[in-house]
């Protein structure tokens, strides 16, 4: 029996030690996902906490088919989406866009020197709905149709949001790269 199977078995038997082991092993990776989907640290903490509670509650549903890490990641992303839906349930997501569209598309850029921390910071600066659509499309690989169903927007809105998110990201990446180069050159 593989180690992860043993840990899962222990968790299902209520072993506190195995539960903690599972948390210690995977919390860092899942917390990065939570940060990616949330606008602030407090929200990220909530998502991680709720996500892990769901993981432990639903562990018996995991059939050892496919990646366990992927299964946990899906639960965490779904928890982030639930939070998003709860906060935006009073109005359609399409109607809350107040951000100014960028004037022009940026030129070709050199992305070298950007680290994961920088990328995370950039992605978290996106307006919530753009961040959601970009994460679900570009990182998780969902289609616009699926995204529309997930966060209650139309397919067209999903496409439009993705496009705007990309433009903003390109501009921010450009700014970051420029700042980094300046810092590097003294």
């Amino acid at each position: 029996m593989s180690e992860i199977k043993k840990i899962i078995k222990g968790c299902l038997a209520g072993s506190r030690r195995d539960q903690e082991l599972l948390y210690r092993r995977h919390s860092a990776k899942l917390y990065a996902v939570c940060l990616q989907y949330s606008g602030n640290d407090e929200e990220a903490r909530d998502i991680l906490q709720e996500g892990f509670i769901k993981i432990f509650e639903n562990l018996h549903h995991y059939k050892h088919e496919g990646s366990f890490e992927g299964w946990m990641r899906r639960i965490t992303v779904n928890t982030a989406l639930e939070k998003f839906r709860t906060r935006h349930s009073l109005y359609r997501v399409d109607d809350i866009d107040t951000i100014q569209e960028p004037d022009a598309e940026p030129d070709n850029q050199d992305y070298a020197g950007l680290e994961a921390n920088d990328l995370l910071e950039i992605i978290r600066e996106l307006p919530t709905k753009y961040r959601m659509v970009f994460n679900l499309y570009a990182i998780e690989g969902y289609s616009h149709k699926e995204i529309g169903e997930m966060i209650n927007i139309s397919e067209g809105t999903s496409k439009s949001n993705l496009s705007r998110a990309r433009v903003i990201l390109q501009r921010r990446v450009g700014s970051y790269t420029g700042i980094k180069k300046k810092v590097a050159n003294g």
């Binding site: 860092a28 991680l48 995370l120």
Partner: peptide, 10 residues
């Protein structure tokens, strides 16, 4: 860039 990125939770 964000693949396998890890941040220690509080």
């Amino acid at each position: 860039g964000l693949k396998d990125f890890e941040v220690l939770p509080p």
